[in-house]
Design a protein around this nucleic acid. Structure first.
Lengths: 253, 253
DNA sequence: ATTCCATGAAGATCACCAAGCTCACGACCT
DNA sequence: AGGTCGTGAGCTTGGTGATCTTCATGGAAT
């Protein structure tokens, strides 16, 4: 069925907006992540990049500026643009994480993220227990319901889980914690979908999430912290299976 | 037709060198932080910004792209560029923190940073106790020596303190923790210089830092965590005095 | 070995076209 | 008659391409 809307333009449903800029930036970033432009090497001249991606030099330059602002490349005046080491990248930036995508497994990042979550989320849960508004607790409840209802849909479950943890960080009323939602999203996205077969774990996770909501309602800091910790124990198990599945051949440093 | 005479517009002192781009970006960012372009408002058209800052539209556009990539503004196609809410800014980005500068006191950020540091740094210290290389411990020792020797110079002391904590996060061998060096730098920069009068506190801080180095040498996780916690207690006191000094009139949200 | 210069690539500007969001104006329907 | 809705003009950003300027760099000349 070809949707023929009378007034609108016809046969143009793919790219309503010519998002050339975003596309080019993402493409270059992906190419860098894919080691097409290896760390430490200079990438082609701007004019060559124009041809390679079929866009004007302005677009290329703006893309490079964006990548540079995220620490992925460093423009050296009249010399070229060099790819920075991965330890210089702003890996807390949501866009960077998006560009890395599945290659996050090659970054040894998920373990670091889990460690960071263990340090942060229990504390955030404590803060949430004493600071969350009733509205925020209601939002958490809704996110939990979405997790429970979307139990069979992996993507929906992950989204709901991300929403839950985002709400939790919001409820901690700490701007720094809130900024870390990006890495948590990445961690959940790439840890969860591997453990979709273990349904009983999901049930367990759902129970713990509900317990956390209850703890926040009771303003019970200790219980909230405990729930968060147990949540992360589950996440650790999921991560272990995900890593095992995703890297059949372990590349050595 | 406007001849690019050397004097040009005197609105700003940015008008020379190939550093035009960085200067313009920083200037716009500062103007946003200074509420010259309030949150939620549209900033002037790109052509007007060209005149205001005395540069071409290309430079303006690249600057806006950078600011957009850091969540400070959002470009709406063919409509304008709107300033995002401060909670959307990538406040973990070192550049953003630099642009905010002293106005960090108006962001209610320092308290959040301290809370985050309390969650993270003790854990990072534990990791460092079991993961730090001898080289990294030596770097920490040198940073500590710089703190001790630069005792009288406030700027030097702060720099050394920042270097110390940076080394500590590096020694934790956790990429996520390492990314947080930016906020710690900001916190130290704007908390310490206010308490320079309290010399005895600095002595105390220097002692604790040395103790931490010793704990790492002994691979004593508990001691390392304890040192880090006490360090943050001192930081909390410094922050309290800094805030008191720096905000005579408390601005409400 | 030092100095100088040709080279080439990024930095920056300008002029222009494309496309779509706004808004006001006018026609049409109730 | 009045309100709603289509429509088009105009404005603003998105994108292109040509052009000029500025210097890092490396090789040639001294």
């Amino acid at each position: 069925m070809e949707g023929q809307e009378p007034q609108a333009v016809a046969a143009e449903q793919v790219q309503r907006r010519p998002r050339v800029q975003k596309n080019v930036t993402r493409t270059i970033a992906s190419d860098i992540c894919a080691d097409i432009f290896p760390v430490g090497s200079y990438l082609p001249r701007e004019n060559d990049l124009c041809e390679r991606y079929g866009v004007s030099r302005t677009v290329i330059r703006e893309s490079l500026k964006i990548l540079e602002s995220k620490g992925m490349v460093r423009g050296r005046s009249r010399v070229g643009t060099v790819v920075c080491g991965k330890d210089e990248w702003n890996i807390l930036d949501a866009q960077v994480l998006e560009w890395i995508g599945e290659r996050i497994f090659e970054f040894d990042l998920l373990n670091c993220i889990l460690e960071a979550r263990r340090a942060i989320e229990p504390v955030a849960a404590e803060f949430a227990a004493e600071r969350a508004t009733v509205q925020e607790i209601a939002d958490l409840e809704r996110a939990w319901q979405a997790m429970r209802d979307g139990e069979r849909d992996v993507a929906g479950f992950t989204d709901a889980d991300v929403a839950f943890h985002t709400c939790l960080l919001k409820a901690s009323h700490n701007q720094v914690f809130l900024q870390l939602v990006g890495i948590i999203q990445a961690a959940l996205k790439f840890s969860l979908h591997a453990s979709n077969e273990a349904a009983e774990r999901r049930d367990e996770a759902i129970d713990i999430h509900r317990e956390l909501v209850e703890a926040l309602r009771m303003r019970d800091k200790a219980a909230a912290r405990d729930c968060s910790t147990r949540m992360l124990d589950l996440a650790a198990r999921d991560l272990a299976t995900a890593v095992k599945q995703h890297s059949p051949a372990k590349p050595v440093l």
